[in-house]
Write a protein that binds this DNA or RNA. Sequence first.
DNA 1: CCCCAATACCGGGATATCCCACTATATCCA
DNA 2: TGGATATAGTGGGATATCCCGGTATTGGGG
Lengths: 154, 154
Amino acid sequence: MERNRCNCAALRKASRHMTLFYDAALEPSGLRSTQFAMLTEIHRRGDAAPAIGDLAEALVMDQSTIGQNLRPLQRDGLVTLERDEADRRSRLVKLTRAGRSRLADARPLWLAAQEKFEDGFGKRAAAELRNQLVGIAGDPSLVPERAELQKQKA
Amino acid sequence: MERNRCNCAALRKASRHMTLFYDAALEPSGLRSTQFAMLTEIHRRGDAAPAIGDLAEALVMDQSTIGQNLRPLQRDGLVTLERDEADRRSRLVKLTRAGRSRLADARPLWLAAQEKFEDGFGKRAAAELRNQLVGIAGDPSLVPERAELQKQKA
DNA sequence: CCCCAATACCGGGATATCCCACTATATCCA
DNA sequence: TGGATATAGTGGGATATCCCGGTATTGGGG
């Protein structure tokens, strides 16, 4: 069919629909999908608090998007931003006690959503799909600008 | 790895990255990915001009999102909205001459992006991926509310 | 024929997302 | 060491996206 021939549109439709599903699952925690992803990434770093740019790279988002998206979390006291004394241009993002607590509330809700999705879609199929998606998200040939940024670090 | 275990986050990251790629490709036409997808869907209907709700269903978007997203296109004279005299609650969305022209400008840019992506990702792999994504976007078990809406129509 | 539930849309409000231009800081190198 | 360049983040502006509550219209009983 001529319909759904566009790789980008297909990805975006699935992304919108999947987001509705995860947002509904996370709703009791008061977190949206993006917020849960950001808090999870910050938590994953443990003691090595990430700067805004680190989050941007890990989450495949623009730096300014990270800054923007952190505001509601900061306003609600889930994260703090403090200057990195080792490089005063950077701001380190840290979870507060309330942030860790909120994340702990959300995790079982997220896990339930994962399981519900994978029950229907197939655990193996889901892992394979994520593999493909991670490949796309990290493909430097798609966005040359970002490829250069990657090269800088190597 | 613990990282990238979330199906939703993986989908969203890939969606963001892919969108950058298609947006860059479409840039000379002045259309963004979403706008191109909307104009394409309207055009696909031919003489049977869709209402806002029809577009919402086809594009897996909220009705209010469609309405919002149509505004820049309307402002730029690419589409018109007119009351459906057969059901005065509905508004039919139609391409203007300028809209058709803009879409014609964008199509080769889109096709080049498709080919460039599929050159790297594999034509067969891309088709398979789209298949999976269409399945997710249309899965009524993920968002029960929408499932009911679907049932109404059956 | 009239009332009521359902439907189609809109307006307001919030988050999500990007780009651009700007500031502050750091780094490199002549 | 001092100035050019590069990097980290912010603020403003635009589109994208959802939900909720309200309005107009429709269609089905009674």
